[in-house]
């Protein structure tokens, strides 16, 4: 790790101002992703802008249409929230499947979405549920937010302040956890929303994607069997030391079927 300055702004505007004025500064939330990057010297920002002190960003609130979750809500908060369990239970289960207890008690939903790891869990939920990412400037529909491998629509000095999730009629999530990292080898989130069936997949390759094949099949019949034997083309999947493309393509159908079963349970 190299030396960096450390700032603890007290308000979102202060944080944004710092990000704009201090060159090569980075916001830090739970630090679960950023700190290992700094330790391995893969990034060396001149300053860290700690979001931890920003008021009100840890809240989980009910809205008529669903939930509004603050950017600093930790995975453990979401996993054990009564409100989430009532309105979008699949989201609570998803949060409970992230990493290990230490990671869940530090990592935040805002950090996860901003980071957009191609195997992260939250992006699948956000995309499938048609969430809107709230920043200090605007609301970005999930459909426009995730731009591939670690890329998002966030501007250079734009902060996520929260996420709003419309509650689906029903939703489910299933993932095969990488036994080492616990990230998704493949994870599939299915949701029956006001705008129809939406299915998002993570872990497949270059970031979270919608899966039209599954969406169409489930629109006809919202049952595990509808997707269990649908085979996606392995060419669209990544191959690495943890999983070959053909296996990931196979897992996509298995996880889709299990996510549907989870939604129906």
């Amino acid at each position: 790790m190299r030396d960096f300055a450390y700032h603890q702004p007290a308000t979102v505007p202060d944080a944004v101002a710092l990000l704009g004025s201090v060159s090569e500064s980075r916001p830090i939330a739970g630090g679960m992703t950023l700190l290992p990057t700094l330790k391995n010297r893969l990034a060396s920002p001149s300053a860290l802008i700690d979001l931890a002190g920003l008021p009100g960003l840890q809240s989980i609130e009910e809205r008529s249409f669903g939930l509004a979750i603050g950017a600093l809500a930790r995975h453990a908060d979401v996993a054990r929230s009564r409100l989430v369990a009532t309105r979008i239970p699949a989201l609570a289960r998803l949060a409970g499947s992230i990493g290990d207890p230490a990671v869940r008690h530090r990592g935040t939903i805002g950090g996860s979405l901003a980071n957009n790891d191609p195997a992260a869990d939250y992006p699948a939920a956000a995309l499938a549920l048609g969430a809107r990412i709230v920043t200090n400037r605007r609301e970005i529909p999930a459909d426009d937010f995730f731009l591939g491998l670690f890329e998002t629509a966030l501007g250079p000095d734009e902060l996520i302040t929260g996420v709003v999730f419309p509650a689906p009629k029903r939703a489910g999530y299933a993932k095969l956890r990488n036994p080492a990292s616990r990230y998704a080898v493949v994870g599939v989130f299915v949701a029956e929303t006001a705008n129809g069936i939406r299915v998002a997949m993570t872990g497949a390759g270059n970031g979270v994607v919608r899966v039209p094949e599954f969406e169409q099949a489930l629109a006809t019949s919202f049952a595990p069997e509808a997707v269990a034997h649908l085979r996606l083309a392995p060419d669209d999947f990544a191959s690495d030391m943890h999983a070959e493309a053909a296996y990931r393509a196979h897992l996509a159908s298995v996880m889709a079927a299990r996510a549907v079963a989870d939604a129906l349970a």
Binding site: P179, A180, S181, Y183, M241, H242
Partner: peptide, 30 residues
């Protein structure tokens, strides 16, 4: 038997499983 493997890239000789994110130690829940 189930998860650990030191994997080297057979061209470059780089250790691919060079962290706990990629080298799977057995855990209590396994």
């Amino acid at each position: 038997a189930l998860c650990e493997a030191a994997i080297y890239d057979d061209q470059s000789g780089q250790l691919l499983s060079g962290s706990f994110m990629d080298y799977c130690m057995p855990r209590a829940d396994m």
